[in-house]
C-alpha cells in the first residue's frame, strides 16, 4: 500500500478534505549508501532483532499443561463473563500471561511458585491438589488471599501471588479487544478534537475560559494554511 492509499484509508468522510494542500506528501527518499535492507524489512516498525526476539519468545513454552489448566481457571475467577463482556479466557489472557512471563523473566518464579503454593494449600487443607478440590474449596483458598487488607499474616505469600495474578489478568483483559469493548473505549482513530462534550462540561460544572475561546482550534478552519501578521497573530 502506498502512502496516498494509506492516507485515503485513514481519512474518510469529512476528514478527507483539506488535510493536505495538494493531497500529496513528500516523495520517498532517494537511495541510501551503506543502508541495505536487513532481512525482510520491518513489520509494524519492528527491527529484525525485535522480530527474531518476539518469534523466539513465542516459540518457547513456559507453563506446563497442569499450570495452564490452573491459570485458565483462576483468570476467569478474577475476570468472569458478565452482561458487558466476555471472560478473561474469552479474551486470551492465559496466552498473554504465557508470553509476558517469558518476556519479563522476573515473573517466572513467583508465578510458578504461586501456582504450586495453591496445590500445597489444597493438600494441607483437603488432601488433594487445587484443581481436584471442589469449587467451594478452591474459593475458600482464594478468599484467604484475595483481600490484602483482611488476609491473615500466614497467607501473605499467597496474597502477593494473587496480587500479581490479578494485575496480569486485569491488564491482559483490558488491553484485549474484549476489554476495549468492556471499557467502551472510543479512541485510537482519526477524529477532530473539539473539546469536552457540552453535557459533560455541565455535569462536572466546568466552563471554558472566555479569553481562550477565540483562539482554540476551530474544526471549520483547521484545513486552511496558517498565516500570521508580523506580530504573530494568526490571520489565516
Amino acid at each position: 500500500m502506498n502512502r496516498r492509499e494509506n492516507l485515503k484509508l485513514l481519512f474518510t468522510g469529512s476528514l478527507a478534505s483539506g488535510l493536505f494542500m495538494t493531497g500529496c506528501g513528500p516523495e520517498a527518499p532517494k537511495e541510501i549508501a551503506h543502508a541495505p535492507v536487513i532481512g525482510e524489512g520491518t513489520k509494524w516498525g519492528r527491527t529484525p532483532e525485535e522480530m527474531a526476539h518476539n518469534a523466539a519468545l513465542k516459540e518457547d513454552v513456559f507453563f506446563t499443561e497442569g499450570e495452564m489448566e490452573k491459570l485458565n481457571y483462576l483468570v476467569d475467577v478474577i475476570i468472569p463473563k458478565d452482561d458487558v463482556s466476555g471472560s478473561a479466557t474469552d479474551a486470551g489472557v492465559p496466552d498473554f500471561i504465557e508470553f509476558i512471563v517469558k518476556d519479563m523473566p522476573h515473573y517466572q518464579t513467583p508465578m510458578r511458585g504461586g501456582l504450586m503454593w495453591l496445590d500445597n494449600q489444597a493438600d494441607d487443607r483437603f488432601g488433594k491438589t487445587f484443581m481436584e478440590a471442589s469449587t467451594e474449596e478452591r474459593i475458600q483458598i482464594i478468599d484467604d488471599i484475595a483481600y490484602p487488607d483482611k488476609a491473615k499474616p500466614a497467607m501473605s505469600r499467597g496474597v502477593k501471588f494473587f496480587n500479581t495474578l490479578r494485575d496480569l489478568t486485569s491488564t491482559g483483559f483490558f488491553t484485549s479487544q474484549e476489554g476495549f469493548k468492556d471499557l467502551d473505549y472510543k479512541g485510537n482513530r482519526p477524529n477532530v478534537w473539539d473539546g469536552i462534550p457540552d453535557e459533560v462540561m455541565a455535569k462536572h460544572g466546568f466552563k471554558l475560559e472566555e479569553k481562550y475561546i477565540p483562539i482554540y482550534m476551530n474544526p471549520d478552519t483547521r484545513a486552511t494554511l496558517a498565516q500570521w501578521d508580523d506580530e504573530g497573530n494568526l490571520i489565516g
Binding site: I196, Y216, M217, G232
Partner: peptide
Amino acid sequence: FLPPPKPRL
C-alpha cells in the same frame, strides 16, 4: 502560534 486544542476534562 497555531491554535491550541481545548482542554481535556
